[in-house]
């Protein structure tokens, strides 16, 4: 008997597997005519407040729903449920990002054709979520005025992979001496041409523009 360990070649691409699941999801979303938006940011940027406001406003006219990724708690889902939209928590445990397979599992008992919009709030993290496609139509990256204008330069991959930048907590801009010019310059450096919006979930500033962009994008995608 040979007691030495065996080495076997596998050569399996970790992202490719995720991409396959994401591709299947994307085609399901298309068939069900639901427009899917994902949100990434660092912890504390205000993803949940932004999403709660969005769901509440959309609810007047559409059928929105949300999936929320979180390491341990269901606090975010509880907050979002106040909007009266269907919300489901994905607890990732030790994992710092969502993967397409987790989204697929979470959607098992939902009828996608009953929805117009689906939002996927990723785990608060600017590193890990960058490499994982979730089948979304639009990926938002949020940056709050309180966290420093150089975040895009520090985490280029996540900003580069996003379709739209949202600057949150704009009502605090003056108080924290937010350098708007530097923030836009840094975003432009890592993601040339990216559209950027400024919002405040507290005052509602910027939400009119955001909702009209959402509706236009949904139409553009034929949903």
């Amino acid at each position: 008997m040979n007691a030495a360990p065996r080495i076997v070649e596998v050569r399996q691409n970790v992202f490719k597997r995720n991409d396959e699941v994401a591709r299947a999801l994307r085609s399901r979303f298309q068939d069900a005519r639901v427009f899917v938006v994902s949100l990434v940011s660092s912890p504390g940027t205000g993803k949940t407040a932004f999403l709660e406001k969005t769901l509440t406003l959309l609810k007047q006219q559409y059928r929105p729903a949300a999936l929320v990724g979180d390491l341990a708690t269901d606090n975010d889902a509880t907050r979002l449920a106040r909007s009266q939209a269907p919300v489901k928590q994905i607890t990732t445990g030790t994992l710092c990002h969502l993967e397409a397979a987790m989204v697929e599992r979470a959607l098992e008992d939902w009828n996608l054709s009953d929805l117009d919009f689906l939002f996927i709030e990723n785990v608060g993290n600017l590193v890990c979520p960058a490499s994982y496609d979730l089948g979304e139509d639009l990926r938002l990256v949020l940056l709050s005025v309180t966290e420093g204008e150089d975040k895009p330069l520090k985490y280029p991959a996540i900003f580069n992979g996003a379709d739209l930048g949202v600057i949150t907590k704009i009502d605090l801009a003056d108080a924290v001496e937010f350098d708007r010019t530097a923030a836009y310059r840094n975003l432009e450096t890592v993601r040339p041409g990216m559209r950027v919006m400024e919002t405040s979930s507290k005052t509602g500033a910027g939400f009119e523009e955001w909702l009209s962009l959402l509706k236009n994008q949904r139409r553009k995608h034929g949903r």
Binding site: P5, V8, R11, Q12, N13, V14, F15
Partner: peptide, 12 residues
């Protein structure tokens, strides 16, 4: 840009 599981060491 890849992340690949290239090989496994298995107990015999």
């Amino acid at each position: 840009r890849d992340l690949q599981v290239s090989a496994l060491e298995l107990a015999s």
